[in-house]
Nucleic acid binder design. Sequence first.
DNA 1: CTCAAGCAGCGTGTATACATTGAGCCGCTC
DNA 2: GAGCGGCTCAATGTATACACGCTGCTTGAG
Lengths: 239, 239
Amino acid sequence: MRQSVSVLLTLRSWILDGTLCAGERLWEASLADRLSVSRTPLREALSRLAHEGLLERADRGGYAVRSFSPEYLKQTIELRGTLEGLAARQAAEARPSATRLEPLRQLVDRIDALVTHPVLDEDALSQYTTLNSAFHQHLIALADNMALAEALARIEHLPFASPSAFVMSYAHSPSAHRSLLIANDQHRCLVDAITHGEGARAEQIAREHARLAQRNLDTVLEHPARLERLRGSALIQAP
Amino acid sequence: MRQSVSVLLTLRSWILDGTLCAGERLWEASLADRLSVSRTPLREALSRLAHEGLLERADRGGYAVRSFSPEYLKQTIELRGTLEGLAARQAAEARPSATRLEPLRQLVDRIDALVTHPVLDEDALSQYTTLNSAFHQHLIALADNMALAEALARIEHLPFASPSAFVMSYAHSPSAHRSLLIANDQHRCLVDAITHGEGARAEQIAREHARLAQRNLDTVLEHPARLERLRGSALIQAP
DNA sequence: CTCAAGCAGCGTGTATACATTGAGCCGCTC
DNA sequence: GAGCGGCTCAATGTATACACGCTGCTTGAG
């Protein structure tokens, strides 16, 4: 793989897991040294991370790790909800065949099988994350809207902008478990609305789905212990 | 100014005005030569243009000018409409003071003064573009939603994704002139809805506003003579 | 003692040199 | 004559060297 790409992946994980602190100024020479590459591929990765929104240009040249206010994160979730709402509407209006909808149905069922278990261990939550992401990917694909898919891809690297970002902070919490059940009910309703070509309803459900995620964010923000388990939490500004 | 930035601006205009053709593979050495810079700042600009969506990575390294299907452009317009719809809704729900709304009102009035003239010369259309862009910028600012503003900024460089992209192709066309009148009526309704805190109505109007732009795109695509006058038309794939 | 000017050091921005990879072509062999 | 293998060249990817600007300190004069 190109070095600039692996540097990009490494830096992104360093930013999200707090190895690089929010607000921290990035020094090209020392970073290049830590990563064992020259400044050229490093700078390409930095440039890309800035475009993604995880870095910002510092006042006098160079980059710094961006930090996000809780307000900004809620806005990002609402943004995703709005875009997925558009995707859901267009998916419904496209009247997809049963064959195209089948993967979505199966994902709902498989998620159901997971979340109806009385207790969810680490492994189950990990599977949930995978299945949930797959559901949202399939939904977006159904809309058959390249511009929309690209717009969603552009925000997916922002903290908590991806679906099921909160799952891992939720183990062993009854209210959290309930949230997963509600979320998959919404998935099922969404598939139903799309099946019947009800675009407006599909859009409404997708937006409500995002509002659930917003409430989860609120809950997590109120519990520092949970917040710590959350990938990207190091980027959150104190409320 | 940094060289990479001026290179970015130059390349963007070259792409949009057809100096660089759709699908054309970009050769770093010759481009750097034409621009009288080294490959380093050139590559930074290319990387950024690729993130903006105007370039795509070629199969075996390097970049090529992207081309857009009419379908993609319509999707982009709908995307903007959806995002501005969210902005309009949030602007209304924020119940902005009369003071904050005043600039929007004034812009509507000034646009009115322009478009109610029986004939619009080149200069008037240019003013229209400026005022219309300002209206949309102020609208977005009213939503006070940084994540949304960034998302809109990310798509604004795509062809026809910016408001009033079609104006310059419209001189001396009665139906086009009528479209401008309708558009500003929608502006006025939008301000009214925001004034009264009617979020849902504001969102609906913003989306309808984008549908008008979609129809304008259709009209332009049917008239090659008009299409030629349109900035970015060189990027459109034959339907 | 204070303030300003100059100097040194550092860090980004830019240029250029080097490496690597892949495609195209020529020639050799079966 | 066809196919395979190696060579060559060119273009990107990477490393390094150079230039410019900014910062902060030091030193000297008022």
